[in-house]
Write a protein that binds this DNA or RNA. Structure first.
Lengths: 251, 251
DNA sequence: GAGTGGTCTAGACCACCCC
DNA sequence: GGGTGGTCTAGACCACTCT
Protein backbone atom coordinates (compact mmCIF):
# COMPACT_ATOMS: atom_id res chain seq x y z
CA UNK A 1 0.00 0.00 0.00
CA UNK A 2 1.31 3.38 -0.93
CA UNK A 3 1.10 6.09 1.63
CA UNK A 4 -1.21 8.95 0.94
CA UNK A 5 0.84 12.12 1.34
CA UNK A 6 -0.89 14.85 3.27
CA UNK A 7 0.78 17.87 1.78
CA UNK A 8 -1.31 20.96 1.20
CA UNK A 9 1.09 22.24 -1.43
CA UNK A 10 1.21 18.98 -3.37
CA UNK A 11 -2.55 18.64 -3.10
CA UNK A 12 -3.20 22.00 -4.69
CA UNK A 13 -0.35 21.60 -7.12
CA UNK A 14 -1.65 18.72 -9.18
CA UNK A 15 -4.59 20.39 -10.92
CA UNK A 16 -3.27 23.34 -12.94
CA UNK A 17 0.37 23.21 -11.96
CA UNK A 18 2.10 26.43 -10.95
CA UNK A 19 5.86 26.50 -10.66
CA UNK A 20 7.43 27.79 -7.48
CA UNK A 21 9.31 30.58 -9.21
CA UNK A 22 6.00 31.83 -10.55
CA UNK A 23 4.60 32.08 -7.05
CA UNK A 24 7.75 33.89 -5.93
CA UNK A 25 7.30 36.27 -8.84
CA UNK A 26 3.79 37.03 -7.62
CA UNK A 27 5.03 37.64 -4.09
CA UNK A 28 7.70 40.00 -5.39
CA UNK A 29 5.11 41.84 -7.47
CA UNK A 30 2.88 42.23 -4.43
CA UNK A 31 5.76 43.74 -2.51
CA UNK A 32 6.31 46.15 -5.38
CA UNK A 33 2.63 47.13 -5.42
CA UNK A 34 2.65 47.56 -1.64
CA UNK A 35 5.60 49.89 -2.05
CA UNK A 36 7.92 47.81 0.07
CA UNK A 37 10.69 48.74 -2.35
CA UNK A 38 10.39 52.08 -4.12
CA UNK A 39 11.42 52.91 -7.69
CA UNK A 40 15.18 53.25 -7.92
CA UNK A 41 15.80 51.34 -4.72
CA UNK A 42 17.56 48.00 -4.44
CA UNK A 43 15.57 44.94 -3.46
CA UNK A 44 17.14 42.40 -1.08
CA UNK A 45 19.86 40.14 -2.45
CA UNK A 46 19.00 36.80 -4.03
CA UNK A 47 20.33 34.99 -0.98
CA UNK A 48 18.20 37.07 1.40
CA UNK A 49 15.07 36.51 -0.66
CA UNK A 50 15.82 32.78 -0.87
CA UNK A 51 15.96 32.66 2.93
CA UNK A 52 12.82 34.75 3.25
CA UNK A 53 10.73 32.57 0.95
CA UNK A 54 12.43 29.32 1.97
CA UNK A 55 13.47 28.35 -1.54
CA UNK A 56 16.82 28.00 -3.27
CA UNK A 57 18.69 30.90 -4.75
CA UNK A 58 18.14 29.47 -8.23
CA UNK A 59 14.37 29.67 -7.83
CA UNK A 60 14.47 33.29 -6.67
CA UNK A 61 16.76 33.92 -9.60
CA UNK A 62 14.22 32.63 -12.11
CA UNK A 63 11.52 34.85 -10.61
CA UNK A 64 13.77 37.90 -10.79
CA UNK A 65 14.81 36.99 -14.33
CA UNK A 66 11.19 37.08 -15.40
CA UNK A 67 10.61 40.48 -13.81
CA UNK A 68 13.83 41.81 -15.32
CA UNK A 69 12.72 40.60 -18.76
CA UNK A 70 9.57 42.70 -18.31
CA UNK A 71 11.67 45.74 -17.37
CA UNK A 72 10.12 45.81 -13.92
CA UNK A 73 13.41 45.09 -12.17
CA UNK A 74 16.91 45.92 -13.31
CA UNK A 75 19.90 43.73 -12.50
CA UNK A 76 23.34 45.26 -12.02
CA UNK A 77 26.14 42.82 -11.58
CA UNK A 78 28.15 43.43 -8.44
CA UNK A 79 25.65 46.00 -7.13
CA UNK A 80 22.24 44.43 -6.75
CA UNK A 81 18.78 44.30 -8.27
CA UNK A 82 16.83 47.54 -8.50
CA UNK A 83 13.25 48.61 -9.01
CA UNK A 84 13.01 50.16 -12.47
CA UNK A 85 12.10 53.81 -12.70
CA UNK A 86 11.15 56.31 -15.38
CA UNK A 87 13.12 58.92 -13.50
CA UNK A 88 16.57 58.00 -14.77
CA UNK A 89 17.57 60.03 -17.83
CA UNK A 90 18.20 56.83 -19.76
CA UNK A 91 14.64 55.58 -19.24
CA UNK A 92 12.82 58.91 -19.35
CA UNK A 93 11.34 58.29 -22.76
CA UNK A 94 11.37 54.52 -22.70
CA UNK A 95 8.05 54.20 -24.54
CA UNK A 96 8.77 56.84 -27.17
CA UNK A 97 9.31 55.17 -30.53
CA UNK A 98 9.62 58.24 -32.70
CA UNK A 99 13.22 58.58 -33.78
CA UNK A 100 15.04 60.47 -36.52
CA UNK A 101 15.59 58.68 -39.83
CA UNK A 102 19.23 59.67 -39.61
CA UNK A 103 21.30 59.95 -36.47
CA UNK A 104 20.72 58.92 -32.91
CA UNK A 105 17.51 58.92 -30.91
CA UNK A 106 17.17 62.09 -28.89
CA UNK A 107 14.77 63.49 -26.35
CA UNK A 108 12.18 66.13 -27.16
CA UNK A 109 11.40 69.34 -25.33
CA UNK A 110 7.88 69.64 -23.99
CA UNK A 111 5.60 72.60 -24.46
CA UNK A 112 2.34 72.30 -22.52
CA UNK A 113 -0.91 73.63 -23.95
CA UNK A 114 -3.41 73.13 -21.16
CA UNK A 115 -4.72 70.88 -18.40
CA UNK A 116 -8.47 70.32 -18.25
CA UNK A 117 -10.96 68.37 -16.23
CA UNK A 118 -13.77 66.51 -17.98
CA UNK A 119 -15.66 63.27 -18.29
CA UNK A 120 -14.44 60.10 -19.94
CA UNK A 121 -16.04 59.37 -23.30
CA UNK A 122 -17.10 55.82 -24.11
CA UNK A 123 -13.83 54.87 -25.76
CA UNK A 124 -11.67 56.12 -22.91
CA UNK A 125 -13.96 54.74 -20.20
CA UNK A 126 -13.72 51.33 -21.80
CA UNK A 127 -9.97 51.53 -22.25
CA UNK A 128 -9.35 52.60 -18.65
CA UNK A 129 -11.98 50.36 -17.12
CA UNK A 130 -13.92 53.34 -15.75
CA UNK A 131 -17.62 54.00 -15.35
CA UNK A 132 -19.13 55.97 -18.21
CA UNK A 133 -18.42 59.67 -17.87
CA UNK A 134 -16.09 59.19 -14.90
CA UNK A 135 -14.03 62.31 -14.13
CA UNK A 136 -10.75 62.51 -16.01
CA UNK A 137 -7.94 65.02 -16.34
CA UNK A 138 -6.52 65.79 -19.77
CA UNK A 139 -3.11 67.20 -20.52
CA UNK A 140 -2.30 68.54 -23.95
CA UNK A 141 1.24 69.16 -25.07
CA UNK A 142 3.49 69.55 -28.05
CA UNK A 143 6.77 67.69 -28.21
CA UNK A 144 9.51 69.55 -29.98
CA UNK A 145 12.41 67.72 -31.57
CA UNK A 146 15.47 69.71 -32.56
CA UNK A 147 13.40 72.89 -32.71
CA UNK A 148 10.59 71.35 -34.75
CA UNK A 149 7.15 70.65 -33.25
CA UNK A 150 6.52 67.03 -34.24
CA UNK A 151 4.01 65.55 -31.84
CA UNK A 152 0.76 66.96 -30.54
CA UNK A 153 -0.70 64.78 -27.89
CA UNK A 154 -3.41 64.50 -25.31
CA UNK A 155 -2.91 62.48 -22.16
CA UNK A 156 -6.04 61.39 -20.30
CA UNK A 157 -5.85 60.24 -16.69
CA UNK A 158 -8.56 59.20 -14.22
CA UNK A 159 -8.91 62.12 -11.79
CA UNK A 160 -9.53 59.70 -8.93
CA UNK A 161 -6.03 58.28 -9.28
CA UNK A 162 -4.30 61.57 -10.06
CA UNK A 163 -6.00 64.27 -7.97
CA UNK A 164 -5.09 67.96 -8.02
CA UNK A 165 -3.16 67.77 -11.23
CA UNK A 166 -2.50 71.29 -12.48
CA UNK A 167 -0.64 72.86 -15.33
CA UNK A 168 1.70 74.59 -12.88
CA UNK A 169 2.73 71.37 -11.15
CA UNK A 170 3.37 69.51 -14.33
CA UNK A 171 5.29 72.41 -15.82
CA UNK A 172 7.60 72.54 -12.84
CA UNK A 173 8.57 68.91 -13.28
CA UNK A 174 11.33 68.34 -15.75
CA UNK A 175 11.27 65.43 -18.13
CA UNK A 176 8.60 62.97 -19.15
CA UNK A 177 5.05 62.66 -17.89
CA UNK A 178 5.75 59.20 -16.56
CA UNK A 179 8.62 60.51 -14.51
CA UNK A 180 6.27 63.15 -13.08
CA UNK A 181 3.49 60.67 -12.31
CA UNK A 182 5.99 58.42 -10.60
CA UNK A 183 7.43 61.03 -8.30
CA UNK A 184 4.16 62.84 -7.63
CA UNK A 185 1.66 59.99 -7.41
CA UNK A 186 3.88 56.96 -6.97
CA UNK A 187 2.32 55.44 -10.08
CA UNK A 188 4.65 53.42 -12.24
CA UNK A 189 3.84 52.47 -15.85
CA UNK A 190 5.24 49.09 -16.70
CA UNK A 191 3.93 48.42 -20.19
CA UNK A 192 1.72 49.89 -22.89
CA UNK A 193 -0.29 48.94 -25.95
CA UNK A 194 -0.38 51.13 -29.02
CA UNK A 195 -2.49 51.27 -32.14
CA UNK A 196 -1.31 53.30 -35.13
CA UNK A 197 -3.28 54.85 -37.94
CA UNK A 198 -2.77 57.44 -40.63
CA UNK A 199 -5.05 60.45 -40.35
CA UNK A 200 -5.38 63.91 -41.86
CA UNK A 201 -4.44 66.93 -39.74
CA UNK A 202 -7.42 68.89 -38.45
CA UNK A 203 -7.35 72.60 -37.75
CA UNK A 204 -6.04 72.31 -34.20
CA UNK A 205 -3.27 69.87 -35.14
CA UNK A 206 -2.32 71.91 -38.18
CA UNK A 207 -1.80 74.99 -36.04
CA UNK A 208 0.31 73.33 -33.42
CA UNK A 209 2.44 71.35 -35.81
CA UNK A 210 2.74 74.19 -38.32
CA UNK A 211 1.40 72.24 -41.27
CA UNK A 212 -1.57 72.54 -43.60
CA UNK A 213 -4.93 71.08 -42.71
CA UNK A 214 -5.14 67.65 -44.30
CA UNK A 215 -1.47 66.80 -43.96
CA UNK A 216 -1.09 63.07 -43.24
CA UNK A 217 -0.20 62.46 -39.60
CA UNK A 218 0.63 59.33 -37.68
CA UNK A 219 -2.02 58.84 -35.02
CA UNK A 220 -0.78 56.81 -32.07
CA UNK A 221 -3.31 55.67 -29.48
CA UNK A 222 -1.82 54.29 -26.30
CA UNK A 223 -3.10 52.58 -23.21
CA UNK A 224 -0.50 52.34 -20.43
CA UNK A 225 -0.64 49.87 -17.58
CA UNK A 226 0.71 49.79 -14.06
CA UNK A 227 1.41 46.73 -11.90
CA UNK A 228 -1.11 43.97 -12.26
CA UNK A 229 -1.99 45.02 -15.81
CA UNK A 230 -4.22 47.80 -14.57
CA UNK A 231 -4.84 50.44 -17.29
CA UNK A 232 -4.28 53.94 -15.93
CA UNK A 233 -3.51 56.19 -18.89
CA UNK A 234 -4.97 56.77 -22.30
CA UNK A 235 -3.29 59.02 -24.79
CA UNK A 236 -3.51 59.99 -28.41
CA UNK A 237 -0.52 61.41 -30.22
CA UNK A 238 -0.57 63.04 -33.63
CA UNK A 239 2.84 62.89 -35.17
CA UNK A 240 4.37 64.62 -38.14
CA UNK A 241 6.61 62.02 -39.74
CA UNK A 242 9.01 64.15 -41.71
CA UNK A 243 12.59 63.17 -41.08
CA UNK A 244 11.33 61.10 -38.17
CA UNK A 245 9.49 57.81 -38.03
CA UNK A 246 8.04 55.28 -35.64
CA UNK A 247 10.60 52.54 -35.16
CA UNK A 248 9.69 49.00 -34.25
CA UNK A 249 11.44 45.65 -34.06
CA UNK A 250 9.65 42.43 -34.87
CA UNK A 251 10.79 39.11 -33.54
CA UNK B 1 52.20 27.29 -2.90
CA UNK B 2 49.13 27.30 -5.09
CA UNK B 3 49.21 25.38 -8.30
CA UNK B 4 49.05 27.30 -11.51
CA UNK B 5 46.28 25.76 -13.60
CA UNK B 6 47.13 25.33 -17.26
CA UNK B 7 43.73 25.57 -18.84
CA UNK B 8 43.50 26.89 -22.38
CA UNK B 9 39.84 27.80 -21.90
CA UNK B 10 40.47 29.76 -18.74
CA UNK B 11 43.40 31.50 -20.39
CA UNK B 12 41.36 32.87 -23.25
CA UNK B 13 38.38 33.58 -21.03
CA UNK B 14 39.83 36.36 -18.95
CA UNK B 15 39.98 39.19 -21.46
CA UNK B 16 36.45 39.90 -22.72
CA UNK B 17 34.63 37.08 -21.00
CA UNK B 18 32.19 34.95 -22.98
CA UNK B 19 29.92 32.55 -21.16
CA UNK B 20 29.84 28.93 -22.25
CA UNK B 21 26.13 28.96 -23.07
CA UNK B 22 26.80 31.83 -25.42
CA UNK B 23 29.35 29.78 -27.29
CA UNK B 24 26.91 26.87 -27.43
CA UNK B 25 24.31 29.24 -28.81
CA UNK B 26 26.70 30.21 -31.58
CA UNK B 27 27.40 26.56 -32.39
CA UNK B 28 23.67 25.83 -32.55
CA UNK B 29 23.15 28.82 -34.83
CA UNK B 30 25.91 27.62 -37.12
CA UNK B 31 24.25 24.25 -37.37
CA UNK B 32 21.00 25.99 -38.25
CA UNK B 33 22.72 28.04 -40.96
CA UNK B 34 24.43 24.93 -42.31
CA UNK B 35 21.01 23.32 -42.56
CA UNK B 36 21.86 20.47 -40.23
CA UNK B 37 18.31 20.76 -38.87
CA UNK B 38 15.66 22.03 -41.27
CA UNK B 39 12.67 24.22 -40.44
CA UNK B 40 10.00 22.23 -38.69
CA UNK B 41 12.38 19.44 -37.69
CA UNK B 42 13.35 18.53 -34.14
CA UNK B 43 16.88 19.20 -32.97
CA UNK B 44 18.63 16.63 -30.73
CA UNK B 45 17.52 16.39 -27.12
CA UNK B 46 19.17 18.50 -24.45
CA UNK B 47 20.99 15.46 -23.10
CA UNK B 48 22.34 14.56 -26.54
CA UNK B 49 23.54 18.10 -27.17
CA UNK B 50 25.11 18.23 -23.72
CA UNK B 51 27.08 15.08 -24.56
CA UNK B 52 28.02 16.43 -27.99
CA UNK B 53 29.38 19.72 -26.68
CA UNK B 54 30.73 18.25 -23.44
CA UNK B 55 28.82 20.58 -21.17
CA UNK B 56 26.03 20.08 -18.66
CA UNK B 57 22.39 19.91 -19.64
CA UNK B 58 21.76 23.18 -17.83
CA UNK B 59 24.20 25.01 -20.06
CA UNK B 60 22.67 23.65 -23.25
CA UNK B 61 19.33 24.61 -21.75
CA UNK B 62 20.36 28.26 -21.37
CA UNK B 63 21.54 28.38 -24.98
CA UNK B 64 18.27 26.90 -26.23
CA UNK B 65 16.29 29.25 -23.98
CA UNK B 66 17.96 32.21 -25.65
CA UNK B 67 17.18 30.92 -29.15
CA UNK B 68 13.61 30.12 -28.13
CA UNK B 69 13.21 33.67 -26.80
CA UNK B 70 14.21 34.92 -30.26
CA UNK B 71 11.62 32.64 -31.88
CA UNK B 72 14.35 30.74 -33.68
CA UNK B 73 13.62 27.49 -31.86
CA UNK B 74 10.36 26.30 -30.38
CA UNK B 75 10.16 24.15 -27.25
CA UNK B 76 7.39 21.60 -26.83
CA UNK B 77 7.31 19.85 -23.52
CA UNK B 78 7.32 16.10 -23.82
CA UNK B 79 8.07 16.22 -27.55
CA UNK B 80 11.29 18.04 -28.18
CA UNK B 81 12.75 21.30 -29.47
CA UNK B 82 11.96 22.28 -33.03
CA UNK B 83 13.31 24.66 -35.65
CA UNK B 84 10.77 27.46 -36.07
CA UNK B 85 9.13 27.83 -39.46
CA UNK B 86 6.90 30.32 -41.25
CA UNK B 87 5.10 27.40 -42.85
CA UNK B 88 2.81 26.55 -39.98
CA UNK B 89 -0.57 28.27 -40.27
CA UNK B 90 -0.14 29.77 -36.84
CA UNK B 91 3.09 31.54 -37.81
CA UNK B 92 2.27 32.32 -41.43
CA UNK B 93 1.80 36.00 -40.76
CA UNK B 94 3.97 36.31 -37.70
CA UNK B 95 5.30 39.74 -38.68
CA UNK B 96 1.96 41.21 -39.75
CA UNK B 97 0.85 43.78 -37.19
CA UNK B 98 -2.23 45.07 -38.94
CA UNK B 99 -5.27 43.83 -37.07
CA UNK B 100 -8.94 44.80 -36.90
CA UNK B 101 -9.97 47.36 -34.27
CA UNK B 102 -12.72 44.99 -33.22
CA UNK B 103 -12.56 41.23 -33.25
CA UNK B 104 -9.74 38.76 -33.67
CA UNK B 105 -6.67 38.98 -35.88
CA UNK B 106 -7.26 37.24 -39.17
CA UNK B 107 -5.22 36.43 -42.24
CA UNK B 108 -5.54 38.33 -45.52
CA UNK B 109 -5.94 36.98 -49.03
CA UNK B 110 -3.18 37.90 -51.44
CA UNK B 111 -3.71 39.32 -54.91
CA UNK B 112 -0.45 39.65 -56.87
CA UNK B 113 0.08 42.55 -59.25
CA UNK B 114 3.40 41.76 -60.87
CA UNK B 115 6.96 40.51 -60.48
CA UNK B 116 9.71 42.61 -62.02
CA UNK B 117 13.46 42.61 -62.25
CA UNK B 118 15.37 45.82 -61.74
CA UNK B 119 18.29 47.49 -60.01
CA UNK B 120 18.49 48.42 -56.35
CA UNK B 121 18.19 52.12 -55.67
CA UNK B 122 20.48 53.75 -53.14
CA UNK B 123 18.11 53.27 -50.21
CA UNK B 124 17.51 49.59 -50.90
CA UNK B 125 21.15 48.86 -51.67
CA UNK B 126 22.14 50.36 -48.35
CA UNK B 127 19.42 48.53 -46.45
CA UNK B 128 20.27 45.16 -47.96
CA UNK B 129 24.02 45.64 -47.93
CA UNK B 130 24.24 45.37 -51.73
CA UNK B 131 26.39 47.13 -54.29
CA UNK B 132 24.74 50.12 -55.91
CA UNK B 133 22.31 49.08 -58.63
CA UNK B 134 22.66 45.38 -57.85
CA UNK B 135 19.96 43.27 -59.52
CA UNK B 136 16.82 42.87 -57.46
CA UNK B 137 13.43 41.29 -57.97
CA UNK B 138 10.30 43.17 -56.92
CA UNK B 139 6.95 41.66 -56.11
CA UNK B 140 3.89 43.86 -55.84
CA UNK B 141 0.70 42.64 -54.22
CA UNK B 142 -2.48 43.74 -52.56
CA UNK B 143 -3.55 42.16 -49.30
CA UNK B 144 -7.29 41.84 -48.92
CA UNK B 145 -8.89 41.63 -45.49
CA UNK B 146 -12.49 40.47 -45.26
CA UNK B 147 -13.08 41.47 -48.86
CA UNK B 148 -11.46 44.91 -48.53
CA UNK B 149 -8.12 45.74 -50.13
CA UNK B 150 -6.14 47.25 -47.26
CA UNK B 151 -2.45 46.90 -47.99
CA UNK B 152 -0.55 47.57 -51.18
CA UNK B 153 3.01 46.47 -50.89
CA UNK B 154 6.21 45.97 -52.76
CA UNK B 155 8.69 43.33 -51.71
CA UNK B 156 12.25 43.73 -52.96
CA UNK B 157 14.67 40.80 -52.90
CA UNK B 158 18.27 40.46 -54.14
CA UNK B 159 18.06 38.43 -57.35
CA UNK B 160 21.33 36.69 -56.49
CA UNK B 161 19.76 35.09 -53.43
CA UNK B 162 16.38 34.40 -54.99
CA UNK B 163 16.96 33.42 -58.62
CA UNK B 164 14.24 32.59 -61.12
CA UNK B 165 11.46 34.09 -59.10
CA UNK B 166 8.39 34.38 -61.29
CA UNK B 167 4.81 35.48 -60.83
CA UNK B 168 3.60 31.97 -61.65
CA UNK B 169 5.70 30.28 -59.01
CA UNK B 170 4.73 32.66 -56.28
CA UNK B 171 1.09 32.49 -57.24
CA UNK B 172 1.09 28.72 -56.95
CA UNK B 173 2.34 28.89 -53.39
CA UNK B 174 -0.36 29.36 -50.85
CA UNK B 175 0.10 31.60 -47.85
CA UNK B 176 2.68 34.19 -46.96
CA UNK B 177 5.76 35.23 -48.89
CA UNK B 178 8.01 34.09 -46.07
CA UNK B 179 6.49 30.65 -46.22
CA UNK B 180 7.19 30.60 -49.95
CA UNK B 181 10.78 31.81 -49.59
CA UNK B 182 11.40 29.20 -46.92
CA UNK B 183 10.16 26.24 -48.93
CA UNK B 184 11.54 27.42 -52.28
CA UNK B 185 14.87 28.95 -51.32
CA UNK B 186 15.44 27.62 -47.82
CA UNK B 187 15.70 31.19 -46.57
CA UNK B 188 14.26 31.79 -43.12
CA UNK B 189 13.46 35.27 -41.82
CA UNK B 190 14.09 35.50 -38.12
CA UNK B 191 13.50 39.14 -37.32
CA UNK B 192 12.64 42.48 -38.91
CA UNK B 193 12.88 46.20 -38.34
CA UNK B 194 10.08 48.53 -39.34
CA UNK B 195 9.71 52.27 -39.70
CA UNK B 196 6.27 53.80 -39.93
CA UNK B 197 5.15 57.07 -41.43
CA UNK B 198 1.93 58.72 -42.54
CA UNK B 199 1.80 59.53 -46.25
CA UNK B 200 -0.76 60.62 -48.81
CA UNK B 201 -2.00 58.06 -51.34
CA UNK B 202 -0.58 58.54 -54.85
CA UNK B 203 -2.41 57.58 -58.02
CA UNK B 204 -1.22 53.97 -58.04
CA UNK B 205 -2.06 53.35 -54.40
CA UNK B 206 -5.40 55.09 -54.73
CA UNK B 207 -6.41 52.77 -57.55
CA UNK B 208 -5.43 49.57 -55.83
CA UNK B 209 -6.88 50.48 -52.45
CA UNK B 210 -10.00 52.06 -53.91
CA UNK B 211 -9.53 55.42 -52.21
CA UNK B 212 -9.05 58.99 -53.36
CA UNK B 213 -5.61 60.35 -54.17
CA UNK B 214 -4.35 62.08 -51.05
CA UNK B 215 -5.99 59.76 -48.56
CA UNK B 216 -3.70 59.33 -45.54
CA UNK B 217 -2.04 55.92 -45.56
CA UNK B 218 0.23 54.19 -43.12
CA UNK B 219 3.58 53.60 -44.81
CA UNK B 220 5.49 50.69 -43.32
CA UNK B 221 9.08 50.14 -44.41
CA UNK B 222 10.58 46.85 -43.38
CA UNK B 223 13.97 45.24 -43.49
CA UNK B 224 13.90 41.52 -42.71
CA UNK B 225 16.91 39.53 -41.55
CA UNK B 226 17.92 35.91 -41.72
CA UNK B 227 20.36 34.03 -39.48
CA UNK B 228 23.37 36.07 -38.46
CA UNK B 229 21.47 39.34 -38.81
CA UNK B 230 21.91 39.36 -42.54
CA UNK B 231 19.38 41.66 -44.28
CA UNK B 232 17.71 39.89 -47.20
CA UNK B 233 14.41 41.63 -47.82
CA UNK B 234 13.23 45.20 -48.13
CA UNK B 235 9.57 46.02 -48.41
CA UNK B 236 7.27 48.98 -48.32
CA UNK B 237 3.63 48.59 -47.44
CA UNK B 238 0.95 51.23 -47.83
CA UNK B 239 -1.91 50.53 -45.55
CA UNK B 240 -5.43 51.88 -45.36
CA UNK B 241 -6.17 52.15 -41.65
CA UNK B 242 -9.94 52.14 -41.58
CA UNK B 243 -11.32 49.67 -39.11
CA UNK B 244 -7.82 48.23 -38.89
CA UNK B 245 -4.68 49.50 -37.21
CA UNK B 246 -1.06 48.64 -36.55
CA UNK B 247 -0.86 47.04 -33.15
CA UNK B 248 2.23 47.18 -30.98
CA UNK B 249 3.16 46.34 -27.41
CA UNK B 250 5.72 48.35 -25.51
CA UNK B 251 7.60 46.93 -22.58
C1' DG C 1 7.16 2.88 -19.68
C1' DA C 2 10.45 5.50 -22.06
C1' DG C 3 11.77 9.88 -23.65
C1' DT C 4 11.37 14.80 -23.74
C1' DG C 5 11.35 19.30 -21.75
C1' DG C 6 10.51 21.79 -17.02
C1' DT C 7 11.45 22.56 -12.11
C1' DC C 8 14.16 22.71 -8.00
C1' DT C 9 18.10 22.13 -5.26
C1' DA C 10 22.97 22.66 -3.45
C1' DG C 11 27.33 23.93 -4.06
C1' DA C 12 31.46 25.75 -6.40
C1' DC C 13 33.51 29.24 -8.68
C1' DC C 14 33.81 33.64 -11.62
C1' DA C 15 33.11 38.68 -12.81
C1' DC C 16 32.07 43.01 -11.10
C1' DC C 17 31.59 46.81 -7.68
C1' DC C 18 32.78 49.28 -3.68
C1' DC C 19 35.02 49.97 0.53
C1' DG D 1 37.97 41.54 1.15
C1' DG D 2 33.31 40.98 1.24
C1' DG D 3 29.06 41.45 -1.13
C1' DT D 4 26.36 41.13 -5.37
C1' DG D 5 24.82 39.09 -9.51
C1' DG D 6 26.39 35.50 -13.26
C1' DT D 7 27.94 30.91 -14.70
C1' DC D 8 28.34 26.00 -14.51
C1' DT D 9 27.60 21.55 -12.74
C1' DA D 10 25.22 17.22 -11.13
C1' DG D 11 21.43 15.03 -9.68
C1' DA D 12 16.61 14.35 -8.31
C1' DC D 13 12.11 14.64 -9.43
C1' DC D 14 7.82 16.41 -12.03
C1' DA D 15 4.82 17.19 -16.21
C1' DC D 16 3.77 16.08 -20.78
C1' DT D 17 3.55 13.11 -25.03
C1' DC D 18 3.51 9.05 -27.51
C1' DT D 19 3.63 4.13 -27.95
Amino acid sequence: MAEIPVDPLAASASPSFRPLYDQIKILLTQSLIAGEWKPGEAIPSEMDLAARYQVSQGTVRKAIDALAAENILIRRQGKGTFVATHTEPKHQYRFLRIIPDKGEKHHPKTSFIDVKRGKANAEIAKALDLKASAPVTSVRRVLVFAGKPLILDEVVLPSALFPNLTLEKIQESLGSIYSFLETTYGMRMIRAEERLRAVAADQFAAEHLAVKVGTPLLCVDRIAFTYGDKPVEWRRGLCLTEGYSYYNELA
